[in-house]
Design a protein around this nucleic acid. Sequence first.
DNA 1: TATGAATGAGTTTTCATTCAT
DNA 2: TATGAATGAAAACTCATTCAT
Lengths: 198, 198, 198, 198
Amino acid sequence: MPKVVPDYKKQAKDTILDSASELFFKGGYSTTSMDDIARKIGVTKGTIYIYFKSKEDVLYGVCNRNMNMLQEALKNVDPDEFLHMGTKFFKTEMKMPDHIKFHWIFAMGEMESNPKIKNILSKSYREYVMVLREKIDQLKLLKKISENTDSLKLARILISFHNGVLMSVMQGLSESTAVDLFGEGMASLLQNHYRTND
Amino acid sequence: MPKVVPDYKKQAKDTILDSASELFFKGGYSTTSMDDIARKIGVTKGTIYIYFKSKEDVLYGVCNRNMNMLQEALKNVDPDEFLHMGTKFFKTEMKMPDHIKFHWIFAMGEMESNPKIKNILSKSYREYVMVLREKIDQLKLLKKISENTDSLKLARILISFHNGVLMSVMQGLSESTAVDLFGEGMASLLQNHYRTND
Amino acid sequence: MPKVVPDYKKQAKDTILDSASELFFKGGYSTTSMDDIARKIGVTKGTIYIYFKSKEDVLYGVCNRNMNMLQEALKNVDPDEFLHMGTKFFKTEMKMPDHIKFHWIFAMGEMESNPKIKNILSKSYREYVMVLREKIDQLKLLKKISENTDSLKLARILISFHNGVLMSVMQGLSESTAVDLFGEGMASLLQNHYRTND
Amino acid sequence: MPKVVPDYKKQAKDTILDSASELFFKGGYSTTSMDDIARKIGVTKGTIYIYFKSKEDVLYGVCNRNMNMLQEALKNVDPDEFLHMGTKFFKTEMKMPDHIKFHWIFAMGEMESNPKIKNILSKSYREYVMVLREKIDQLKLLKKISENTDSLKLARILISFHNGVLMSVMQGLSESTAVDLFGEGMASLLQNHYRTND
DNA sequence: TATGAATGAGTTTTCATTCAT
DNA sequence: TATGAATGAAAACTCATTCAT
């Protein structure tokens, strides 16, 4: 790691989080040691303690960052193309590295034992719902979704389905089958909400 | 633990699995110690090693047993009432103890690092899909579901949605909202498959 | 183990010592568990405690018995044939099971840490020397060994050489080479003590 | 342990091996705990695991090092003085600390249960024989030992006797008696091989 | 006499964390 | 800023021993 980079500290932190994120996902939080995280990026344990005050702190960093990444990805979906989310968004998502794509699910294993993680996940879930809800509201304005639609409820339903399909993939469902499944499910869940152009 | 019980060994194992299941869920697998599991049922560590040859062995036992319990619960749903699953089955499920109800989700945290767990979960997932598919096929015979329905695909979609809603609950969604959500989602997902009695 | 045998107790003890002797030699004293010893003879741990009050007690039993067996074997050597011991006695000894033949050497590993074992071995060594010394004295009377021979010293020398060859076998020397070696060494060590028939 | 020593790591390892060597000899391998080894040199258990990856690894280190020390000692004997080895070499050897001098014998207790140890000892034995054989061959060239002597066989015989005497010492023979014994035995074993200067 | 369930003390091993350099 | 030696607390696992049956 070069030492004279502006924002060096932030970059260093990110390098560590990258390493940790991947290892936490592959090996689990408890099973991954500080040594592992350090070795993967060619530094020693001690170095990590310069940037994070504990292993748990690294975990929080990883969760927060990954949750934000997923949220950003959702935010960037063109609202106009939203109804085709089934084919496009999900496909793109499936290309992300496992440790980002499935991070959500993985982190749940730590939730019950760690209230702070529970908070991060809950907060993130609520935000995620809100982002999607806004998309739906935009579509209402664009007259593509019926005005009667309860956008909060629909957002929650879609997210549940989305996450459920991801779980199925983790449990062995092939990615192509998942894409197919997702498309059909989304269509069903949305059909009553499309606005018939009259 | 009384010693003059027929099938004593089986009962002892079950007692241990009960303890472990709850603790694994609450504290995570790695964080839970054999000491914890033992203390909870008033024995010492050594005793557990009489019935299980390692901590991992306990984990496999827990996973297998809980997966089977969930499967049995699904099998026992009256196919005739299946279409109301939304209201009935899910409500009942929500009454189960968290460490059974959410076990599925919890265990995923161990999946990536433990191939044996991955196998248990994958196998269990496939079986679960099959059980649901058979229910759907029965409904076809009863002329309640259209003959054109792809029962395998539908089973997968429903299970994904179901698990996704459970995830949302874990992430802080209230149980009552979840029940509401689940009902509406199921209705949408099934609506194209109902057979119109003509 | 049948229960109505006269001298049952002694036989039971012997069965246990047989098992222990073999396992101690093969796996070492510490590494062998009471369970191992019991399982080998088809009983359970608890049973051994009826006949021996501790694991150490079993060890003492094993050492004493094996030392006596070796001593008896030496006693039974025909003094007249003693000078050919090289060819006959050693060959016979090589046919004994390893855990008897090498017991002497094995037990040394426990000596330094266990004074009682040290006593057993030291006592046994002294007795062994005495048995051999008597043989030599008999040969003196038979005029086959010179009167000037220091029988105690010669006994010690011969035993040292004998044990040293056994060690070499343990260290990988083939048994046939060992027999050859032993024959030649004995001849050299005895040559000055033969009485020239004049 | 000062930290600014060149070759610090090697020295640290050696310190640990010293401690372990002595304790393994005195208390046996299995009975000696990592705690014991660490406490003796004023560090904690964990430290040892920085330098050795397991307890067995420490054992291999101890065996290898001690075997080499004994071999070096033999190598350094002046071949010209070899015939007086009885008085000189053995006396010097007797001054070495027990855990070096008797290491050979002690390690045999672990041999049967640990193939790696068996390899170390067997290899070491063969090398030891070779070192001695070369000494004998040198003496042949110096015309001090007869050309007819089978140097390999003689080497094996001498080593057997030597080790046997050490065993006797372990079994309680006094060191002075042992020195006397050794001298006389060596003389007998060598007498037919001296070259009469004619 | 024999069993086998239970214990608890002890052992190896791992690792987050600290700190002097 | 980075290192790596050292720690100490905790964890998995083993086993001699006891004891009720």
